[in-house]
Amino acid sequence: MSRVRTGRKNGRQAVAYHERLTKSDLQKIYRNLWFARVFDEALYDAKKKGRLRRGNVYGSRGQEAIIVGTTYPLEDGDFVSPIHRDMPVFILRGMTTEEVMCQVWGKAEAPTRGKDSWSHMGDISKGIVHSTSMLGSTIAVACGVLWSLRLDGKRDRVLVAYTGEGATATGPFHEGLNFAAVHKLPLIVVVENNQYAYSTPVELEVPTKTVAERAKGYGIPGYSIDGNDFIEVYNTMCAALEHARAGKGPVLIECVTYRLQGHADHDETRARQYRPVEEIEMWEKRDPLPRFRQYLLSTGQFTESELPEPPPDVVEEIQRAIEYAISRPDPEPHTALEDIYDESAGVSK
């Protein structure tokens, strides 16, 4: 297993891509991290207060560095395939906050027109590929998107497919990664190893010490990194992008992190029973947001007052989008029978 030595403890970074980030970049990243945090908090709050009455809220609290660190270095024409703990990825890759909130509330103008819930949406025109509840299948579908790009001669465009450590136990994960490796497709698989697949701990999902070791079986680089450290995620992602864009094939990045909440909002009580409370408290101390803030202050480029917690415009943007979604019309019942078949090709009776 290869590793990128990016940890600050190791002294000089192997490749310190983050040093290229300007103050303006760092400001955006700070805002994006908080955007992810506030998005999560606002929806938990809406659910608790009964303003969101349907569907589950799958939190990403604690996983923000992964969301921002893997998306920030992407370029136009790159693809992503986010899963249920990556809701801010949809927005960071070009969908509007209003669109995403309409999706959460199941509104008529949502990307799925109220047909499907939460993260099962996408927008191919923005390079966002729809996932399903069968999380491993995203990896296999990604191969098709990348094959399409190959046929179009766009071999340097990548697809970042997100998945969980639990989904690495599925067949489609293996078939997809195997296919991608055989054909050297520019697929970057980001495994959010948040230690639990619903209630099942990682050691009952993965037999190796790290998830990254699975990469050995495909002859591809596998990185096991601190998923709560933005700098480490960002640097690893940049290295992976160089590898993939150069036609060297897929990369597996295991971002070690922790699901600070339950599987979804309905699971908060049980999630403090099937997991040791000390463990949760230990990971609370590794919160990626204060860590990144500390880093910014240490660079000497920022003052405390430049780094509000949270930035007020983030709160305002999210609240405005929530109010917008709530105010929008529900889908008409009869539309449930629309979009099952597409007959526009005219080769059907």
Binding site: V141, C143, G144, S148, E175, G176, N178
Partner: peptide, 20 residues
């Protein structure tokens, strides 16, 4: 393709989503 019926169909699905 390798012996991977899931991947075989999935490749068609992903490619179809992007115009193939």
């Amino acid at each position: 393709a390798p012996i991977s019926e899931t991947a075989i169909i999935a490749v068609c699905v992903g490619a179809a989503a992007t115009g193939k």
